[in-house]
């Protein structure tokens, strides 16, 4: 049976599965990385994802317009991000707790809208698989990396972009400055509020896309609590990645591959209780972090409110 597990086609399927599974985590975690780098912890990601997932699904269900679906998910995510920014930056509210509030609101509101506007569980035709010309024809690699839908590619493109913005632009410098030492950044003329508004609302927008990637690209369905706590795992992955986009990518991939693997283990009939199989990705994520023994410090001002002295 173990031999079954490591035949070529199986391995390819497994890796492709991991790549796909990581998509929503990536959108949400990269978005959250920006927010946290600027000092704002947004625990409401899962709620924003649910609102994004519903909005996108609604548009596609009513009109079939996939791009429109993503755009509305972005807009709704952006608005919820702005609300979170208003709460945590302008009103200086405790961040962890307001995030839980935003999560609960999104969890309830998305289901309420679903019940009132659609009512029954339905499927839609989401983003089709779009093999990338040439690249997808490369044996093995093509099947693993280049035979997915557009939103999957988008998630991976986001990683270098995020890396570039954080490390090679003035904006990135400002974001990090605001997250490390808001007083100093303020003295240097960087508006702490403006930067935080920007990062948190962008994080919201990306969480919206993360939701859309579930409802109109990967699952093509909407249901109460579709994300099932996925947004919280995404936040954990931000910590796992030590607030660096490339490491967030690594974390998302490890977590997703192990998740794909545990499904395989069950499918090929290796006799492990299903509960133990299901918990392995979570245990492994912790173990990997222990072994890699990272010494990354969180942004100094993370989850601390900043009030200008007037």
């Amino acid at each position: 049976m173990l031999a079954d597990l490591f035949t070529g086609s199986v391995l390819i399927g497994l890796l492709a599965s991991g790549i796909r599974l990581a998509t929503p985590y990536l959108y949400a975690a990269i978005g959250e990385t920006f927010g946290q780098r600027s000092g704002v912890l947004n625990l409401g990601v899962d709620g924003i994802m649910l609102m994004g997932a519903f909005s996108a699904f609604y548009v596609v269900f009513k009109t079939g317009d996939l791009v429109g679906g993503v755009l509305l998910a972005m807009l709704v995510g952006l608005l919820m991000g702005l609300a979170m920014a208003f709460i945590s930056v302008t009103l200086n509210a405790e961040q962890g707790i307001s995030g839980i509030g935003v999560y609960l609101f999104g969890l309830g509101m998305s289901d309420l809208l679903f019940q009132k506007l659609i009512n029954n569980v339905q499927t839609v035709s989401g983003f089709p698989v779009a093999p990338i010309p040439f690249l997808s024809e490369i044996p093995v690699i093509g099947q693993i990396f280049f035979t997915h839908n557009v939103l999957v590619y988008g998630a991976y493109l986001l990683v270098p972009i995020a890396w570039f913005v954080l490390n090679k632009t003035t904006l990135g410098l400002k974001i990090k400055a605001v997250g490390e030492n808001p007083e100093a950044a303020d003295t240097l003329g960087v508006s702490v509020a403006k930067i935080r508004y920007l990062t948190v609302s962008m994080g919201g927008l990306l969480s919206g896309v993360a939701g859309a990637s579930l409802s109109i690209a990967l699952l093509n369905v909407f249901q109460f609590n579709l994300t099932n706590g996925l947004g919280f795992i995404a936040i954990a992955l931000v910590y796992f990645g030590g607030w660096r986009p490339t490491w967030v990518l690594m974390g998302s991939l490890i977590f997703s591959f192990v998740n794909a693997l545990q499904i395989w283990v069950q499918v090929v009939g290796i006799p492990i209780p299903s509960d133990i199989a299901v918990m392995t990705p979570y245990i492994l994520t912790i173990v990997v972090l222990v072994i890699s023994a990272q010494r990354v410090r969180p942004p100094s001002a993370l989850s601390k409110t900043y009030e200008r002295l007037e």
């Binding site: 599974l21 990967l218 699952l219 009939g269 299903s274 199989a277």
Partner: peptide, 13 residues
């Protein structure tokens, strides 16, 4: 092949 995903709600899994 039988697979129990460990949840009644995890649509993605």
């Amino acid at each position: 092949n039988v697979n129990y995903i460990g949840s009644f709600g995890d649509v993605a899994l």
